[in-house]
Amino acid sequence: MSQFTVSGEFQTRDGPREFSRVVDATNENVAREHVLSRFGAEHGLKRTQVTLNEVTAE
């Protein structure tokens, strides 16, 4: 598995907030899915509230 850095922003009550997460995944699509599901589980956000701007392999 490779490491990917996923960056983007999500909506809060105070406006958009930027983030960057490092995840282990087999490819970029799986890395995107991990980040979206993690934000839903940890912050109760829907996928439409999270914008992924960049996915880079490390």
Rank of each mutant, 00 (worst) to 15 (best):
T26A: 11
N29R: 04
R21H: 09
E9S: 14
S7E: 06
E42S: 14
N29S: 13
Q11T: 14
E42Y: 11
E58M: 00
E33K: 03
P16H: 10
R47D: 15
T26N: 03
A57S: 05
Q49I: 00
L52I: 15
E58C: 02
V35N: 12
V22K: 11
E33S: 12
K46S: 14
V30P: 00
R47C: 01
E28G: 05
F4C: 09
E42P: 01
F19H: 13
E33P: 00
T51N: 09
K46P: 02
L52K: 03
T48E: 15
P16M: 12
G44A: 06
R13E: 14
L36V: 08
M1A: 07
G15Q: 04
R32S: 08
S20Y: 01
A31Y: 14
D14P: 04
N29C: 06
S7D: 06
N29F: 10
N53F: 04
V23M: 01
V35T: 11
T12H: 10
L45K: 15
A31W: 13
A41K: 09
G8S: 09
F10T: 07
R47K: 12
G8I: 10
N27S: 10
Q3R: 07
V23L: 03
L36K: 13
N27W: 06
V55Y: 07
P16C: 02
Q49A: 14
E42D: 14
V23Q: 06
V55L: 06
G40V: 03
N29M: 09
T5Y: 09
T12P: 14
E18M: 00
R38Y: 08
E33T: 11
S20R: 11
R38W: 10
E33I: 01
T26W: 01
V6C: 12
T26E: 08
S37L: 09
T56W: 01
L45A: 10
L45I: 11
V23S: 04
S20H: 00
N27T: 09
T51I: 02
A57M: 02
R47M: 01
E54Y: 00
A31N: 15
E33F: 00
R17Y: 08
L52P: 09
G8E: 15
H34K: 11
A41T: 13
R38S: 15
R38F: 10
G44K: 05
T12M: 08
S2C: 05
E28D: 11
R17N: 02
V30R: 05
S2D: 12
R47W: 08
H34N: 04
T51F: 03
F39S: 03
G40T: 00
V22L: 08
Q3Y: 14
A57F: 02
N29W: 03
E28A: 15
E28N: 07
L36T: 12
T48H: 12
V55I: 15
L36S: 12
N29Y: 06
V6R: 07
L52E: 08
K46Q: 09
F39T: 04
Q49R: 04
A41H: 08
A31M: 11
V50A: 00
V50W: 00
G40N: 10
R13Y: 10
A31K: 14
S2R: 09
V30W: 00
A25G: 09
D14G: 05
E54V: 00
V6G: 15
V55T: 14
R32C: 04
N29E: 14
V22P: 01
D24T: 11
Q49D: 13
V22N: 03
H43C: 03
N27I: 05
G40A: 10
G15T: 07
R13W: 07
E42K: 13
T48N: 12
T51M: 01
